[in-house]
């Protein structure tokens, strides 16, 4: 029983490899073919052609995104620039008497200069100090501020990708979430974003890819809609440009 964690993992790994052959061989057997080494011809990849042809112009995309996001209880603002976004967030922070703001570590968000505009609040930058318990920090934050990597008009979704400076918790644990979306990142269909992950390949995918389409919600009690059951209950999509 003095097996180390690594030895234990190695033992499981070996067992997994040993079993893989029988497990998957059994499937091939039942399907009535031998081991497959080459990819089967797949005539039906992705959405039908009539769908992939759909493309909206910028104003249509902004309108559809806005309608969708509002319809599920989210908030949307169209702003001209990042400094307008900063002013909007500062305004809300004062209105709600915010104590802790947590934001991703990104150049565009540095330029919001929230530290200057909100001297009385703590402005934390994700993973800026390696020793800090960042998940706990996020759970205590009033505002979380992120920039979307993509956004989808058809479903009203913002897409955030994780990295060392971009925590998954920042868009999840704070009470209020602000998602800054440069209008140039807004596409029409979900597939336009999904295809980029196929193109990137597994080596270039982040650990977490999250499509966020509004505030956390549940209808589990008597079909009565409740907002903010686990994730942020108040979500602002700030469309910039």
């Amino acid at each position: 029983m003095n097996e180390s964690h690594e030895e234990w993992l190695a033992r499981l790994e070996k067992r997994s490899h040993d079993r893989q052959k029988a497990f998957i061989g059994g499937i091939a057997n039942r399907l009535g073919h031998g081991p497959m080494t080459e990819a089967p011809l797949n005539p039906h990849r992705g959405a039908p052609d009539f769908w992939t042809a759909l493309e909206w112009n910028t104003e249509e995309k902004v309108k559809r995104f806005t309608d969708n996001f509002l319809s599920v209880g989210g908030h949307v603002e169209r702003l001209a620039s990042f400094s307008d976004a900063s002013a909007f967030i500062v305004d809300k922070a004062k209105e709600m008497d915010v104590k802790i703001v947590l934001r991703q570590d990104e150049p565009a968000l540095n330029e919001l200069e929230l530290e200057k505009a909100l001297p009385e609040a703590e402005i934390a930058v994700w993973n800026s100090d390696r020793d800090k318990a960042w998940k706990t920090e996020a759970a205590g934050a009033d505002f979380g501020i992120v920039q979307a990597d993509h956004a989808v008009a058809y479903t009203g979704s913002a897409v955030v990708l994780s990295s060392s400076g971009k925590g998954r918790s920042v868009s999840l644990l704070p009470t209020v979430l602000f998602i800054l979306i440069p209008v140039g990142r807004l596409v029409t269909r979900l597939g336009e974003v999904l295809e980029t992950f196929d193109q990137a390949g597994k080596e270039n995918l982040p650990a977490g890819i999250h499509f966020i389409s509004g505030p956390s919600r549940s209808s589990d009690i008597e079909n009565d809609l409740t907002i903010g059951v686990h994730g942020p209950g108040i979500v602002y999509a700030l469309l910039i440009g």
Binding site: N68, V72, Y154, T155, G156, S157, L190, F197, K202, L205, P206, A207, G208, I209, H210, F211, I212, S213, G214, P215, S216, R217, G231
Partner: peptide, 11 residues
């Protein structure tokens, strides 16, 4: 729904 509030891909 057009999409659930969260759709997550974990790699």
């Amino acid at each position: 729904q057009k999409l659930t509030m969260y759709m997550s891909g974990i790699t």
